[in-house]
Amino acid sequence: MKRTLIVACMVALSGCSALNRMGNSLASGNVRGAVSAGQELEAERKKLEAKQAKCKAFENQKATYEEETGIGGAVALNLAARTSGIYIEISPELASSMPQAGVKPKPGKGPKTDLTAYVNRIGKTLAANSERPGLDWTFVVLDSTTPNAFSAPGGYVFITTGMIASVENEAQLAGVLGHEIGHVTGRHAMTAYGKTKATSCTAAMAAGIGTSAAKDAVNLSGEFELLLSAANIDLNKASADLIVKLSDGLADELVSRGNGPEYEFAADGVAYDLLVFSGYDPNEFEKLLAKLPDGGFLTPHPGNKDRVAKLAPRKAEFADFATGLKAPALDPVAKAVKK
């Protein structure tokens, strides 16, 4: 009985004082006091279970625009921090047009300049055809020779110079960006975010008192309780601890597990559609998929044959519409990356 109560105490947030009272009561032979403390422990355990059950609701809670863009910015920085950096060389002309950024241009880079603007021109054209043209889309080039692309909620799309170097033409580059746009418009990462929120909430509620992390854990449990009772969540008003906890959890999930095969197939479908409606030849996307490493570069993806096969029905669906589509050569700023 005592062991059961001790275990119950370990998972209860505020049960340790009750455990102490129970231990003291038992030591002094005060059976009635021990029973009373045990009942208190049981009540605490039930309260904790009730709170944790509420945490589960986060899994299916639809995030507001503010919450999506809030976690999106934090995760974008989090993911970018795991890379070798952002490709920020821009031309003096472009820098002068956006003095608010406070960026000093690096002249003498020749064709390397304006690559970010080029990628944004393609990406924003595709995004204009998407279900969410009103998102504040930002396409970011990462300075990494490893071919990769990923996205964060709210309209952030990242592509490495290595991926740009691996595409043969603008249609293939658009295909990569379109796939990531598909993850954002489908709010795919928000599914993982809901689970991250629920898991973090559950852990915060259960965090024990007396550990070195107790103070933070208790603070987060209180903040999660406030979020549970809030009609809408705006992470811009949340504590830095909470934002870091959630963005770390979501970024870890996206890097280690990816979005899952169903969402990857869905994003391929969106990419195909966006290519067609933006005037790009979608066959180039298929060619690109076929030559990618099977299973993805860094994050898990379905096999290439399956991805190409899933796109096959779309050819028939778009046969009448997809006329006069092109695969333009890459702009010199992108070709320079290939060297």
Partner: peptide, 11 residues
């Protein structure tokens, strides 16, 4: 942070 803000400015 500056790099991402710059990319946002370019976008």
């Amino acid at each position: 942070v500056k790099g991402l803000a710059t990319a946002e400015g370019v976008a």
